[in-house]
Write a protein that binds this DNA or RNA. Sequence first.
DNA 1: CGATTGATTGTTTTG
DNA 2: CAAAACAATCAATCG
Length: 168
Amino acid sequence: MAKKAPKSENDRSSSTSVASAKSPPTASNHQMVLRMKSSEKMKKIAQGSDVSESETRPKSKSRLKSKQKKKKTKIDAKMPKKPPTAFFYFLEDFRKEFQEQNPDIKSMRDIGKACGEKWKTMTYEEKVKYYDIATEKRAEFDTAMAEYNKRKESGEDEETEDDSEYDE
DNA sequence: CGATTGATTGTTTTG
DNA sequence: CAAAACAATCAATCG
């Protein structure tokens, strides 16, 4: 049911393979552990693990304070930027549809909310599609990070500190 | 006029 | 291991 008709868009080859494939070429170390954990989590969701309504909602305190901007983690001359997550990819697609279905909506905050809800309703298979893309992206990112780490180990005396980074 | 917030979740980063 | 931060996006708003 609800089997999304194949859009004959097999550019990504068999992406509907679900978790069967799951072949993360990564093998860093601690990172791998974390990644594996993620997989476990997904499995949990796939099996449909109840709910967890208690979603800490700090309302606006932490969010406000956080402020996505503010390079606190300076250092980053070569620090690879974080690639968009699966959710973001989904957003890209969803955004277009959402705008078409809701041309009245203007901002993304509304879309984001809608996406979040829909995202939760999406099944693992559907999400996997985006996960796959994100995974690929991360693979590239991993390489970049390897160099970044290397560079750091090689000689990170200046910490890529160009100018003055004395607090703000 | 410019920069920032705002909202979503997922990965990244660092301690 | 855990928590904080940030990733895109774009409209609206503050200064």
